[in-house]
Structure formats: C-alpha cells, structure tokens
Design a protein around this nucleic acid. Structure first.
Length: 294
DNA sequence: CTGGTACAGTTATACTCCTC
DNA sequence: GAGGAGTATAACTGTACCAG
C-alpha cells in the first residue's frame, strides 16, 4: 500500500519500524488551525486502515500525544507534541544565529523573513520575523510551505548533494505530475539564478499574491541544510527591486548567520558553510529533466 | 455513519550462531 | 566487537462484522 510514510522509502529496510512511522504519520495528519480529527478523517489522510488508526490514536492518547474529546468523539494534538517541538527548536544553533539578522532584515525591508528546514517534501519555518507594518499572509514558526514552488524550497533544493536533490525532485515530479512541466521550468530558472547570483526569486508561483527571494544555507559536514527567505505581497514591491536589492541583502544575511554560527559555542551542529553551485563535472549544472530521470 | 473488535494471515523483532 | 544469516515467535495488519 502506498501512503504518506512509504512514499520515497526503500522497498525493504530492516531498520525501518513501520508501526512507529505510522504513529508519526497520524500526528502529521493534524495541521495548524484545523482543530480536531476523527479516526475516519485520519484514516483518509494517512491512507491507513481504520482499525490501525484506532489502535494508534488510542496509544498516542495514552502517551499524551493526542487528547480525546469525548463530546465530539475526535482527537486533537496533546501537550507532549508541543514539548517535543519546543525541545527540537530550542536546541538549534542555526535558529539562534538567524534570529537577529532576520529580524533586522524584516524591519529594513518591511517584509516577512524566515529560516526554514526540510519537512519531508515541504519546508517548515524554524524562525519567522515580520517588518513593522508589513501586510502579508501570516506565517509563523511551524508553518509548512511547498518545496517546489517557493524561493525558500528551491534554495534548499539547490544546496543539497546531487543524490539527495534527485530524490527530492523525483518525489516532487510524482506529486506534481499534472503540472510537472510548469514546476520544472520554475526549478530550472531558480537553479540558474542561484548558480549565477546566490539567490532565487519567485513571483506568485505558490500563492498568486506573494513574491519572495530565497538563499540556501548548509552545514560544512553536508548535513542539515536550511534556507532563508524574504517575502511580501506582490503589490508592495517591484520585481526589479526584489532582484537588485532584496536578493543581495538576503545573501548577506545568510553570510551573517554563518558567521554567527561559527562565533557562538555550538551545542550540536557543525558550522554552516557557503553553498557553492553544484556541477555535473564539466562545470554545468545538470538540467532538471536529467536530474529527475534515474 | 462512525468507532470498535475478533481473528487469521503477515510481518517485524529478538535471539543465536557464525564470520570477519 | 560488529555485523550478517537463519529462525522462532511476538506484534501488527486488514477484512469482516457488530454496536451505538
């Protein structure tokens, strides 16, 4: 059976615990602002059989990861989930190092700025700042945005080693198969921008009223890649200014974050290194079609 | 319509032994 | 000591069905 958790996984991995993955998939079925879910809806979202969902929601409730609301016969996320999220986010050096530079940039540009990391095939906001009077769609820490159509997601993709990037692009191609040509064009263009200038621009590609720039970040050991972005409503800024002003400034902010990471005593992760464009050996980046074909 | 359960079949895990 | 192969068994899954 193909569902969320098996998607992109190796066919046979003896170290992979399916029951645990399914339990986590149930937690992932809950989205911000949606409230409670019943077993039926969870089964629909995860692609898991109803009895399996009933057992797992029972177990997760016993452990405090879900609360059962008897009156509605539905579940909501429990406090243990929040504790996990807080533990994860509070120990991230990159988040500490990014806070001040992103805040300063958000004020200077009167824009929304954010640091994001990968969440399966999406990007999740790890830090988010807002300018003094920015009129934008509210995206807070924990917000998930698509990898394929946002500047942050494309910048992240660009920073990945070839093997990992190809895996992600394969997954994107499967997910967007009806619009793959359009998505591929956008990715190609953004990768070229990133190779040439160190940032990429998106203009109404995810949400029609939103534009933004993205810049990648990567640890020196090749692990835990991140990306930063700056975004605003389309009517608030011209495309020229996005490219001539915002892009270079975001590149500088990324550099400042790397410097901050190197300066502060690290608790876990390696310092972040500048991201160099990846080539296919003869100096040119492989086209998306070639990367997606395996 | 939704949640819950019994049960047979399937799968994952733990354990032992062996090799490097 | 680490890791791979084989095997027994515990745990999990999904179908069918029931109850509210």
């Amino acid at each position: 059976m193909e569902n969320g958790l098996t998607e992109g996984m190796p066919a046979k991995d003896r170290q992979f615990v399916t029951a645990l993955a399914r339990g986590l998939d149930i937690l992932r079925a809950f989205h911000a602002g949606e409230g409670m879910l019943g077993n039926q809806e969870i089964a629909h979202r995860t692609g898991l059989p109803k009895p399996t969902v009933a057992r797992l929601t029972h177990t997760l409730t016993e452990l405090g990861y879900l609360n059962y609301i008897r009156r509605f016969r539905k579940y909501e996320l429990g406090a243990s989930v929040l504790a996990l999220g807080y533990a994860a986010i509070s120990s991230m050096d990159v988040r500490r190092a990014s806070r001040q530079p992103l805040e300063q940039l958000a004020h200077a540009l009167n824009a929304s700025t954010a640091l994001g990391g990968r969440d399966r095939h999406s990007m999740i906001y790890l830090e988010a700042c807002r300018g003094p009077s920015v009129v934008a769609i509210t995206h807070d820490v924990g917000t998930r945005v698509p990898m394929a159509s946002t500047a942050m997601g494309r910048a992240y993709l660009f920073s990945l080693p070839d093997v990992d990037r190809n895996k992600q692009i394969d997954a994107i191609r499967r997910r967007w198969r009806d619009d793959w040509t359009k998505v591929k064009t956008g990715l190609d263009r953004s990768f070229k921008e990133l190779a040439d200038r160190g940032f990429c621009v998106t203009w109404g590609e995810w949400l029609p009223e939103l534009c933004g720039v993205g810049v990648p970040l990567r640890n020196t050991d090749g692990t835990a890649a991140y990306a930063v972005n700056a975004s605003a409503p389309i009517y608030q800024i011209s495309r020229d200014r996005l490219e001539a002003d915002w892009g270079p400034r975001l590149v500088k902010v990324a550099r400042d974050i790397r410097t901050g990471m190197a300066a502060q005593p690290s608790t876990a992760t390696a310092p972040i290194a500048p991201v160099r464009p990846m080539t296919n050996g003869n100096g040119a980046r492989p086209p998306i079609a070639a990367m997606a074909r395996r």
